[in-house]
């Protein structure tokens, strides 16, 4: 236990090492729905100390604490959105793997759609030009 703590402090500040173990803990869920909610929330919340892992995948001590907190909140009957807000209030938008739709993420969410539209319009124009070639 101590050793992992040491390694972790190293991981955060000195090395960019790997947390090699995965997060395995049996939690006393009351229902399957609770378990599914827990898993999906743990997968969309980022472990802030890790290299790019979700709470579900990380064995860092902070991730363990946050999973406990997540579990407690689900037992408390809090909604998914309340739980996300709880995390964002403390760690910022950074913890959400699914960024909220806001003015600064407009390009992220809308970009692919706009590109697709441009691509389709361009294709339509190309085909229209090419059709003339066919008729002549």
């Amino acid at each position: 236990m101590k050793l992992r703590f040491l390694c972790w402090a190293w991981c955060v500040w000195i090395l960019s090492g790997h947390v090699l173990a995965s997060a395995i803990e049996p939690l006393p869920f009351r229902s399957e729905l609770e378990e599914i909610r827990f898993k999906s929330l743990a997968e969309e919340i980022r472990c802030t100390v890790c290299q790019n892992q979700s709470l579900a995948d990380s064995d860092a001590p902070l991730a363990q604490d946050l999973r406990q907190e997540l579990f407690a909140m689900i037992q408390d009957g809090r909604s998914d959105q309340e739980i996300r807000n709880f995390m964002v209030e403390r760690y910022g938008d950074f913890v959400l793997y699914k960024p909220p739709l806001a003015s600064h993420t407009l390009l992220l969410w809308g970009g692919p759609g706009v590109l697709l539209l441009i691509g389709l319009v361009a294709s339509w124009r190309v085909v229209r030009q090419r059709r003339r070639l066919l008729q002549s």
Partner: peptide
């Protein structure tokens, strides 16, 4: 010791 208060402070490392 449990690390619950640290979550409220948004602590993520020491």
């Amino acid at each position: 010791f449990e690390g619950r208060a640290a979550i409220d402070l948004g602590v993520y490392g020491a």
